[in-house]
Amino acid sequence: MKTISLKIDDVIFSETENILESLDKPRNRYINEAIEFYNKVNKKSLLAKKLKAESKLVAENSMDILSEFEDFDYEN
Rank of each mutant, 00 (worst) to 15 (best):
M1N: 05
M1S: 04
K2Y: 07
K2R: 14
T3E: 04
T3D: 02
I4N: 01
I4V: 09
I4G: 05
S5E: 04
S5V: 12
K7S: 10
K7I: 15
I8Q: 03
D9M: 08
D9G: 10
D9I: 09
D9K: 14
V11C: 02
V11A: 11
V11H: 08
F13C: 03
F13H: 06
F13Q: 09
S14A: 08
E15P: 04
E15K: 13
E15D: 07
T16G: 04
E17V: 06
E17C: 08
E17S: 11
E17K: 13
E17P: 02
N18Y: 06
L20A: 02
E21D: 15
E21M: 09
S22T: 08
L23P: 01
L23H: 11
L23S: 06
D24A: 09
D24V: 00
D24H: 08
D24Q: 13
D24N: 14
K25F: 05
P26E: 05
N28A: 11
R29Y: 00
Y30M: 04
Y30C: 10
I31F: 02
I31V: 11
N32V: 08
E33W: 00
A34Y: 06
A34Q: 06
A34D: 00
I35V: 12
E36K: 15
F37A: 11
Y38Q: 07
Y38A: 12
N39L: 13
N39A: 02
N39H: 09
V41S: 01
V41A: 05
N42S: 10
N42C: 13
K43Q: 15
K43A: 11
K43S: 12
K44V: 07
K44R: 14
S45C: 03
S45I: 09
L46E: 01
L46M: 05
L46T: 02
L46C: 04
L47H: 07
A48M: 05
A48E: 05
A48D: 14
K49H: 13
L51A: 10
L51Y: 09
K52H: 13
A53C: 06
A53T: 13
A53H: 14
A53K: 15
E54N: 09
E54Y: 02
E54Q: 08
K56C: 03
L57I: 05
L57C: 03
V58F: 15
A59C: 02
E60D: 07
E60T: 08
E60A: 11
N61T: 12
N61A: 06
S62P: 03
M63I: 14
D64V: 15
I65M: 04
I65V: 11
L66S: 12
S67V: 00
S67D: 07
S67Q: 02
F69G: 13
F69V: 14
F69A: 11
D71I: 06
F72K: 12
D73S: 02
Y74A: 15
E75W: 01
E75T: 15
E75N: 14
E75L: 10
